[in-house]
Simulated assay, not measured.
Amino acid sequence: MSRPVLADLTVGDVVATRAVELDRSTLVRYAGASGDFNPIHWDEGFATDVGLPGVIAHGMCTMGTVIGVVEDWAGDPAAIVRYGTRFTKPVPVPARGTAVVEVAATVGALDAEAGTARIDLAVTHDGAKVLGRAQALVRLS
């Protein structure tokens, strides 16, 4: 796959979409890698007792997983020079099956002088926005 070229992009272009699936084994692996063993990410009873709809995905797991759509589009993870978001709504992960998170990456701004594109991510689960102001700054040729 060839890398995108800045001059070929226009603000508003949808450059990538993806459905990301999260299951309980994803949460277990993320907890082990991150050291975040908060019971809201693995204990159904605890999660509902504190007012959640059930076990929820780690926010940083969701954030880290959905940026993959931009990494793949850019053709090089090192091309992403900045990435940030706000967590707006939890992603409940069922005991069986998966939670599907929909991602659409759109060109939000271009800076020819800096050689960068701001990619805005729309990230939803069951039609609700789960990440707000998710933006990646990508250096392109």
Score class of each variant (00 low, 15 high):
S2L: 10
R3W: 03
R3E: 09
P4Y: 13
L6Y: 13
L6S: 12
L6M: 14
L9A: 13
T10S: 12
T10V: 06
T10Y: 00
G12W: 15
G12L: 08
D13H: 08
D13G: 02
V15R: 14
A16W: 15
T17H: 14
A19S: 07
E21C: 04
L22M: 11
L22A: 06
D23G: 07
D23L: 02
T26F: 11
L27P: 01
L27F: 00
L27W: 02
V28L: 08
V28P: 04
R29D: 14
R29V: 05
Y30Q: 03
Y30K: 06
Y30F: 10
A31H: 05
A31L: 01
G32Q: 06
G32Y: 00
G32W: 01
S34F: 08
S34A: 13
D36W: 02
F37D: 12
N38F: 07
P39Q: 05
I40V: 13
H41D: 04
W42E: 12
E44W: 02
E44L: 14
D49E: 10
V50P: 13
L52W: 03
L52Y: 02
L52E: 07
P53L: 02
P53D: 04
G54L: 10
I56W: 06
I56Y: 04
H58D: 06
H58L: 09
H58C: 11
M60H: 05
C61T: 01
C61Q: 14
T62F: 00
T62N: 10
M63D: 01
G64N: 10
G64M: 08
T65M: 11
I67E: 13
G68A: 12
G68C: 14
G68E: 01
V69K: 09
V69R: 09
V70G: 12
V70Y: 02
E71L: 07
D72G: 11
D72F: 05
D72S: 09
D72N: 11
W73M: 13
G75M: 03
G75E: 03
D76V: 08
A79N: 04
A79C: 10
I80V: 13
I80R: 03
I80L: 10
V81S: 09
R82V: 04
G84T: 06
R86I: 13
R86Y: 02
F87E: 10
F87V: 07
T88A: 03
P90Q: 14
P92K: 03
P92H: 13
V93G: 01
P94M: 04
P94K: 04
P94W: 06
A95Y: 00
A95P: 14
G97I: 03
G97H: 14
T98D: 00
A99R: 11
V100S: 12
V101P: 07
A104K: 04
A104W: 10
A104H: 13
T106D: 04
V107W: 03
V107F: 12
V107E: 08
G108I: 00
A109L: 01
D111N: 15
A112F: 13
A114F: 14
G115L: 04
G115R: 05
G115D: 07
T116M: 06
T116G: 02
A117V: 00
A117I: 03
R118T: 13
D120R: 05
L121D: 08
L121Y: 03
A122E: 14
V123W: 14
T124H: 06
G127N: 11
G127V: 07
A128Y: 01
A128K: 09
A128D: 15
V130N: 12
L131Q: 15
A136W: 10
L137I: 07
V138L: 15
R139Y: 12
L140N: 08
S141D: 11
